[in-house]
Nucleic acid binder design. Structure first.
Lengths: 80, 80, 80, 80
DNA sequence: TCAGATAAAATCGCGC
DNA sequence: GCGCGATTTTATCTGA
């Protein structure tokens, strides 16, 4: 049986790893904001840029889904 | 100043409208499940069907986004 | 054996039924949002209202569970 | 006046920087999920862990707010 | 019945 | 400060 001390120390380690990663994530989100701000500063419209990014993201997602359904079809036809 | 009684009665009315709508929504979700079950009963693969529905939903959403970015472009060009 | 044409047409019919139902579901979800917005406009706090609805939903679920347990007891006692 | 080619190439560069950063962000989000999964595998409850992380985040935010208020006081008193 | 995937709801954070 | 989009958390569903 594990002692509580060990459990606590493991838990603490997990929590700290998560918090470190979340901080990195926040830093990257800030970087993204900075890029939008910089682009805006050189005359680009952030709203348009966000829409472009969003459409390209959808394109990628759609392509993935199409690959997935192809796999499903092949599986259904016993060709996998 | 409104009395608490009036407030309470208004709040109650809002809550009841919401709960009624949520029940309708749940009923429709059940209907959808029934359709999948019926389709499965006639030999169709529900997983494939869900993927088809999902892709068609993405198509529609993508079309909408493309219309929106076109509007953004036109606005940016002062052509609206 | 069914022809592919028949299969396709059946599949199409199922998909369309599902999409129609999903659209209805979305419409109701929009109605719910509208009610929250309307309530907000008359001074109620949407967050609080959502909490109330959620609690009442849990209560209802709890009551149903308790009734089911009661039924089990009655059945076990041969009193159903 | 900038040529369209230059504009396009600048825009493309901004978009690519954003997409790269978003991918890094997603990768980190995945890492976080992995840590939760690993913790779960050693017997910890992810839901509880999320609660802990959330509370600690609030605490941190609260502490920062209190420090800012203290700074305001000190500044108002000419003690900064 | 449970885990793993999917979808929905709620919350958060941003730009306007 | 409000709406809107993204993210996160919760709930539901399906297949093993």
């Amino acid at each position: 049986m594990k002692s509580n001390a060990v459990n606590t120390s493991h838990l603490r380690a997990f929590i700290e790893r998560i918090e470190k990663l979340e901080e990195e994530k926040r830093a990257i989100a800030d970087d993204i904001k900075d890029v939008y701000a910089e682009a805006k500063g050189t005359g680009f419209d952030a709203k348009v840029m966000r829409k472009i990014v969003s459409i390209r993201r959808q394109d990628k997602s759609k392509r993935q889904e199409e690959e997935e359904i192809l796999d499903l079809y092949l599986t259904a036809l016993g060709m996998e």
